[in-house]
């Protein structure tokens, strides 16, 4: 659906060139939710803005649906952009227009009749769950509601692709979840391909299929989300994932205070659903005391972290640890 080849972007600063994106290549499949995560200043926004040429790429090619974006003239680009919607961190709603008028705007520009516009806007308001906020101005809406209006507006012309630049970064965790659910629904029901820029690993975890990690203008790692959580390769990816792992409870576990061995178990996919702990208890005749844990639902799989105390004879405990490791569970002694 989207094919990016050797994309580079330099911002001219006097005679100097600041390379915000360096030789980036990746592809996004149709119907996929593709995440791009990186720290501030990594070049994420620049990259996503190159996709619809809000930012002109300096080098490289962007092929969307078989069309080379970089070869389009202004007019062709404008018509192509109607297929590529965009949502923003700060919503970018027109402050002087109501929710209804905001959603109607792209339709007006396309030249639909009043009646057609009315039908479509009401349908969209319904879809994003804001029927009762039809006549509210952005200043009267909460952040989550504003983003819903922006999403409805983005969907107005039936785009094929949705570009999201930090669409949830200005929202609280609960609202973020609900917006992510809406985006997922859009992908599932309307078949859109979504490119999500974010610096929140939770976003990647919750809805992305695959993810690219950006560091200093380069993509250092591309993998499925499951693979990323299982075996992060780059420093940035590891940092992001450990930020997610570090549970508050964990901080309070001081292993010296326990008689047995305190270990952290990390497991993915099917393992998360198997009764491994009870198997260990039965098999090795040791006590397992659960101290803290969490299981997160990733896109297509689950990932869990469990901190347990293993009590029993040393060799039995060691055998249990080996057994767990043999079952593809990461065991870390704390």
């Amino acid at each position: 659906m989207i094919e990016v080849q050797n994309l580079s972007k330099c911002f001219q600063n006097g005679n100097e060139c600041i390379w915000a994106i360096k030789n980036v290549s990746f592809h996004v499949n149709r119907g996929e939710i593709f995440g791009i995560i990186g720290l501030s200043g990594a070049g994420k926004s620049t990259l996503i803005r190159c996709l619809n040429r809000l930012e002109e790429p300096t080098e490289g090619k962007i092929i969307i649906d078989g069309v080379d974006m970089t070869a389009l003239d202004k007019r062709e680009l404008r018509s192509k952009r109607k297929e590529i919607a965009m949502i923003f961190q700060h919503f970018n709603l027109l402050s002087q227009k109501t929710a209804y008028e905001n959603i109607a705007l792209p339709l007006e520009l396309t030249g639909l009749s009043k009646k057609e516009i009315d039908l479509r806007v009401n349908e969209l308001l319904e879809y994003v769950g804001l029927k009762d906020k039809k006549n509210a101005y952005p200043s009267q809406l909460s952040g989550g509601q504003k983003q819903r209006v922006a999403i409805a507006r983005a969907l107005a012309n039936n785009p094929k692709i949705l570009l999201s630049d930090e669409a949830t970064s200005a929202l609280d965790p609960k609202t973020t979840k609900s917006i992510l659910e809406l985006l997922k629904r859009i992908r599932d029901e309307l078949g859109l391909t979504i490119v999500m820029i974010t610096h929140q690993i939770e976003v990647v975890k919750d809805i992305c299929d695959r993810v690219a990690i950006m560091e200093n203008g380069e993509i250092v790692e591309i993998s499925t989300v499951e693979e990323l959580f299982r075996r992060p390769k780059s420093k940035t990816a590891k940092a992001f994932i450990s930020s997610l792992k570090s549970n508050v409870q964990e901080e309070f576990i001081i292993s010296e205070e326990f008689k047995g061995k305190v270990v952290r178990l990390s497991f993915w996919g099917d393992n998360a659903k198997k009764p491994i702990v009870s198997q260990v208890i039965k098999k090795f005749n040791i006590d397992v005391n659960i101290l803290s844990g969490n299981i997160s639902q990733l896109m297509s799989t689950s990932a869990g972290h469990l901190i347990v105390e293993l009590e029993g004879e040393d060799e039995k405990v060691q055998a249990a640890i080996d057994y767990l490791r043999s079952r593809d569970i990461e065991v870390e002694v704390i």
């Binding site: 619809n52 809000l54 680009l77 404008r78 018509s79 192509k80 952009r81 109607k82 590529i84 919607a85 965009m86 923003f88 970018n92 792209p106 520009l109 012309n157 570009l163």
Partner: peptide, 8 residues
């Protein structure tokens, strides 16, 4: 920017 992004 929004305007540009929808091809206005």
């Amino acid at each position: 920017e929004f305007g540009q992004s929808i091809g206005a």
